[in-house]
Simulated scan of single mutants.
Amino acid sequence: MPDATGAPGPGPAHPTKTQLIELLAHVLSAHVADFTAAAAASDLTASQAKTLGVLRRSPASMRSLATSLACDASNITGIVDRLEKRALVRREVNPEDRRIKNVVLTEEGERTIDTVRETMHRTQQALDKLSGEERTELYRLLGTVFPE
């Protein structure tokens, strides 16, 4: 919570779940706005950049992408088509089931999502305020609350 000067204060000693949810909503909103602007600077929609981010972790089937991105499978086809046209992803046959196509990030796709992340200036500046130990603790806490 900001103090009279606008600087963030220490916050409540024991925040309620509601207070935590409000703060998470504020942080997420700022992150999404920053991510959307960084994606646009790379000539991507937020959905296209999110797809590249999901694929950064590992290749995925179209169905799996739709689930991860919480959207209809028909939307994924259009997103992947546009990313493939730019050589940011490619489709490969799943070795375990040849009927399934996996979507794989290309080297250019990796560079592009890295650029998006690097140009998220507001998020980068916010994280720069933390020490290495604080970033480690935040990473651990977020991983505990929202396991992958």
Rank of each mutant, 00 (worst) to 15 (best):
P12Y: 02
T123V: 08
H31N: 13
L20R: 05
D3A: 03
A4D: 08
A33I: 08
Q124W: 04
G6T: 07
R63Y: 06
N94L: 07
M1F: 00
E92L: 15
R63N: 02
A41P: 07
H14Q: 04
E84A: 07
A4Q: 10
D34G: 12
A40Y: 13
N75Y: 03
E22L: 06
L88E: 10
A60T: 04
M62W: 02
T123S: 03
S47V: 08
R57P: 07
M1H: 01
G109F: 04
T112D: 01
A39M: 14
N102E: 02
A49M: 15
Y139V: 06
H121Q: 09
A46T: 12
E148R: 13
Q124K: 06
A33Y: 14
Q19D: 02
A60N: 00
E22Q: 02
L24Y: 00
V80L: 04
I100M: 12
H121L: 09
A30T: 09
R122P: 10
A25V: 00
R111S: 08
A60L: 02
R111V: 00
E108A: 08
I79C: 04
I100C: 05
R57N: 03
D43Y: 12
A40R: 13
S58R: 12
H14W: 05
G53C: 04
T144I: 09
V27S: 07
S74A: 15
H26W: 15
I76S: 06
T67Q: 08
G11Y: 05
A37Q: 13
I113D: 04
T51Y: 09
L55H: 03
A49G: 11
T112M: 08
E148M: 07
D34C: 13
A46Y: 14
R98Y: 11
L83H: 08
L130Y: 01
R99P: 04
R56G: 08
T144V: 10
A30S: 09
P12I: 01
R99S: 09
N102Y: 07
T36F: 05
T123Y: 05
